Simulated assay, not measured.
Amino acid sequence: MKYRTIVLALLCTLFICLEIGSQNTEGGLDYRSLGLLIDHDKAADTIKVSSKGAVKGQSITKTSRVNKEVLQRVIAKHPRKLCFEMIYFDEEATALFDQLSDLEEITLINTNVGDNAIRHLSKIKSLKGITVINGNITDESIFTFAQMTELEYLKLDRNLFIPWTADRLLQKLLPDTKVEVSI
Results as ranks from 00 to 15, higher is better:
N24G: 10
R73I: 06
Y31I: 14
K77A: 08
A9C: 07
F89H: 00
T5F: 07
T61M: 14
E150H: 15
V66L: 00
L160T: 08
S51M: 05
A95S: 12
M86D: 14
I16R: 04
L174Y: 03
C83I: 06
F143L: 10
F15E: 01
M148Q: 04
T25G: 05
K172V: 11
V181T: 13
F84E: 00
V70P: 04
Q171T: 13
V70I: 13
D90Y: 01
V181K: 13
E105S: 12
G53Q: 05
Q147W: 00
D167G: 12
G28Y: 05
S50I: 04
A166Y: 07
S22D: 01
L71I: 07
Q171I: 00
N134Q: 07
F161K: 13
Q171P: 02
G57E: 01
Q72K: 14
I87V: 13
K2I: 13
L11Q: 06
S101F: 03
L121K: 06
D39L: 15
L29F: 11
N112M: 09
T46E: 05
T46S: 02
V55A: 12
Q99I: 05
D167Q: 14
L36R: 14
I133P: 01
Y88N: 09
D139C: 01
T165F: 11
R158V: 09
D98A: 14
V181G: 09
W164R: 15
